[in-house]
Simulated assay, not measured.
Amino acid sequence: MANTESAKKRVRSNERRTAVNRARVSRIRTFIKKVEAALATGDAGAAREALRAAEPEIMRGVTRGVLHQNTASRKVSRLAKRVKALAVPPSA
């Protein structure tokens, strides 16, 4: 257990930061799930709108330090690719 005052304060600070960061990551996951749900239903319009809402949320995670830039870019790219594939009718 922490002995010094500064170490005790760090423990308290870390608990607060962990709660905030956990909420941020949870929010990002929710937005991603909304895109995936729209993709599962096959609704291209809803998927496009969900992606449009999710992308800034994912990138905000990078700004806030809960996601790495490459991770966020990869997630956005893969979601965008799936949304685009849904919008294009399959060729015969």
Rank of each mutant, 00 (worst) to 15 (best):
N70T: 06
K34Y: 07
G65L: 01
S73F: 05
L79Y: 05
F31Q: 08
V88H: 03
K84V: 13
P89Y: 03
A87S: 08
A85N: 02
R78D: 11
S13L: 08
I28C: 05
T41P: 10
A19G: 06
P56L: 09
H68S: 06
L67A: 04
Q69V: 01
T18G: 03
A7W: 05
A50D: 06
S13D: 13
A46Q: 14
L79F: 03
M59S: 02
N21T: 09
E55R: 09
N70E: 10
P89H: 06
K9T: 10
A72Y: 04
A23F: 14
A19I: 10
K75P: 07
A19Y: 03
K75T: 02
A40G: 11
L79Q: 06
A53R: 04
E36V: 14
A44G: 12
K84D: 14
R48M: 07
D43K: 12
E55S: 05
R12S: 10
E49S: 14
I58P: 01
R29D: 03
K9H: 12
I28S: 01
S26I: 12
A46M: 13
R16K: 14
A53M: 01
R10K: 15
I28H: 00
R27F: 12
R16Y: 05
T30E: 00
A53K: 04
T41M: 09
D43T: 11
R16M: 04
V35I: 06
T30P: 03
A40V: 13
S26M: 13
G42C: 01
F31E: 09
A37Y: 15
M59G: 01
R17V: 14
Q69S: 00
R16A: 01
K34L: 08
E49A: 15
A50W: 11
A50S: 10
R29L: 02
S73G: 09
K34R: 07
S91R: 15
R22N: 14
A2D: 14
E5I: 15
P89F: 06
A2M: 15
K8L: 05
K84L: 12
V11E: 10
A7L: 09
A2H: 14
R27D: 11
A23P: 14
F31W: 09
